[in-house]
Amino acid sequence: MLRIAARRLALAPLTLLLVSFVTFVLLRVTGDPVDIFLDINRTPEQVEALRQRLHLDQPLVVQYLIYVRDLLTGDFGQSLQYGGPAINAVIPTIVPTLQLVGLALLLAVVLGVAAGFVAAVYKDKVPDVVLSSLAVVGQSMPSFWLGILLIQFFSLRLQWLPTSGRGGWENLVLPSLTLAAFLLPNFMLVTRTAILDLMSEQFVQTARAKGLSFTRILLTHIFPNMVNPLLSFLGIQIGTLVGGSIITESIFGWPGIGRLMIGAVANRDVPVVLVTVFIVSVTIIIANLLVDILQSIVDPRVRQ
C-alpha cells in the first residue's frame, strides 16, 4: 500500500508539470497580456518593460522553463491584475471553495447512496421508478438553470434562504445543493447497479439459501462489497465537481477559486491561472490517492 502511495506521489510532479505546460501554452497562444494590460496609447517603452518583465521576448518554451525555475524557488509569479504575488490572490478563495465542494460531495454521496439503496431494494417498484426518473431529470438538468430555479423558489417565494454571497451556513445551502445535484444522480445509479449486481453473486445467493435475513445480507454481504466501486467512482467525480463549482460560484456570487480562475483566464493573468490550476490539480491528485488508499484498506485484492 505504501508503495502504491509512494509511486503515485512520485508521478504527481510529472502530472503537475504536464498540466501547467498545457495551460501555459494555451493561455499564451490565445492572448497577449501586453494587449490586455496596456491600452492603445501605450508607449514602446511600456511595451518593452512589460515584455521583459513577463519574458515575452523569449521563445515560448524558454518562458515556460523560466516559470518552472521560479516555481522551484516557491515563486508563483506576480499577478498582472492584482499587482502582487499571484499566490496572495488565490489563498483567500481556497476555503470558500473547499466548503462548497466538501458539503456538496457529502450531500451527493449520502443522499445518492441512500437513494440507490432504496431503488435497488424496491427494484421496478414505485420507489425505484420515481427515484430513477428523478435521477434522469437531475442528470439532464443544467446546474445553471437549477441554481436560478432554487433561488426563485427558496429565496423569493419562501424567503427561507439568501440568494447569494458568503456568510452563515444558510448561504451555503443553495450553492451546495446545486453542485450536489450535478453528482447525486450518478451516485444513486452507481449504488443501485452495484447492489443489483451483487445480489446475483453466488455468495449472496448462498447467504440467502442459508436463511439469513435480507437486512443482514445487505449489511454484511452487500454493503462492504459495494464500497469499492463507489470509491473508484468518487475518485473520477472529484474533477467534475471542481468543474461544476466554477458555474455554481458564478451563479451564487460565491467568492471561490473557480470564479477567480475564470476572471484570470479572461485577463490572461497567467500566473494566477497557473496557481489555481496547480491547487486544483494537487487537490485532485491527493483525493485520488486517498481513494486508492481507502480502497486497499477496504479490499484486500487491491493490495496485491
Partner: peptide, 18 residues
C-alpha cells in the same frame, strides 16, 4: 457593495430585499 456577477441572481437579491 456586493459583487453578484450573475444578473438573474442580482435581480433575485433585489426582489428578496437583500
Amino acid at each position: 457593495i456586493r459583487e453578484i456577477p450573475e444578473a438573474a441572481t442580482r435581480v433575485a437579491s433585489l426582489i428578496a430585499g437583500e
